[in-house]
């Protein structure tokens, strides 16, 4: 029972990272219908920006988050406005796949050039601190990302549900022409969506960096895991993303503990296939066709 509870706790901690890492991906897919294959690259870029600021100013990694948000928001918004939007206008959504994939390669190569291909870690003062109760161990470096994930995903949920921008995003996601007729500047909304999603990816990157070693090559893993989380939890729903992330984390640690660490990807994709067959809209998502 103790092992089971510890594994469950570890899964929740890991799930927090997955959820936050996927929230930006889910937002873009939900609002614009674009599978942003550069999502993992933006996450890793955020990790490097956080690392750079943290090391240069000798400050706690978590204090770099405001700066990371600004940088990644700007990068994401510009990327959407001047590259993705133009591509979608000319070549449709399929062309955006190629553009986002291309940009992920460019970010990867630039990071490898400037920072080297080796793995890095962002060291926090609480990296090796832990809380113990009833024989269960929770590493603080994993608990902090979980808490931040829940707070940020809730913030995203309320922003989408209550704010004017959230309403505009939802309107643009349902019917672009109707949204325009209502006076919504859809291009601006899409750019802001990409900016916010990238900022979330950046924050996730810093938090991932405090927990796991990362390198320019890590981007693929985070794009794929974001995709799995969205399929599990459902697109266009921050609550679904949180649920999907936590489920993926628990699935990962349970498989590693009770089957073998070797089969975590196998089980992850088995569940992914099952979800696509049984409930393609995800646990908390809308029907697949209605996401656009």
């Amino acid at each position: 029972m103790h092992v089971f509870l510890q594994t469950l706790l570890d899964g929740l901690m890991l799930g927090g990272l997955y959820a936050l890492a996927a929230s930006g991906f889910s937002l873009i897919f939900g609002v614009m219908g674009i599978l942003n294959l550069a999502h993992g690259a933006f996450l890793v870029l955020g990790a490097y920006v956080g690392l750079q600021i943290s090391q240069s100013l000798s400050i706690e990694p978590i204090l770099t988050l405001p700066a990371v948000v600004v940088v990644l928001f700007a990068a994401g918004a510009l990327f959407q406005r001047y590259l993705v939007q133009l591509t979608v206008d000319r070549g449709g959504l399929v062309a955006s796949l190629l553009v986002t994939f291309g940009v992920s390669l460019i970010i990867h190569d630039l990071l490898a050039h400037f920072y080297g291909p080796g793995s890095r870690t962002i060291v926090s003062s609480y990296a090796y601190s832990r809380i113990e109760f009833g024989g269960l161990v929770i590493g603080l470096s994993r608990l902090v990302p979980l808490v931040v994930s829940i707070v940020l995903i809730l913030a995203l949920h309320f922003m989408l549900a209550r704010s004017r921008l959230g309403r505009e995003m939802r309107a643009a996601s349902q019917q672009i022409v109707a949204a325009r007729l209502c006076g919504i500047n859809v291009r601006r909304v899409f750019a802001l969506t990409f900016g916010i999603a990238s900022a979330y990816a950046g924050v996730a990157g810093v938090l991932v960096g405090t927990v796991l070693p990362f390198s320019p090559n890590s981007e693929t893993y985070w794009t794929i895991s974001a995709f799995v989380v969205v399929v599990l939890g459902g697109a266009k729903s921050p609550a679904g993303t949180l649920l999907g992330g936590l489920l993926l984390g628990i699935l990962n640690t349970m498989t590693a503990q009770f089957i073998s660490p070797l089969f975590t990807s196998t089980v992850m994709f088995l569940v992914l296939v099952l979800m696509l067959l049984v409930r393609p809209q995800g646990i908390l998502g809308h029907a697949a066709g209605a996401t656009r």
């Binding site: 594994t7 990962n252 990807s265």
Partner: peptide, 20 residues
């Protein structure tokens, strides 16, 4: 013996086993 995939995000299961 514990076999890990090339990309690992968590080894807490392995470590729990080692502590046992």
């Amino acid at each position: 013996t514990y076999s890990l995939p090339a990309e690992v995000t968590d080894v807490s299961g392995v470590l729990a086993s080692i502590r046992e």
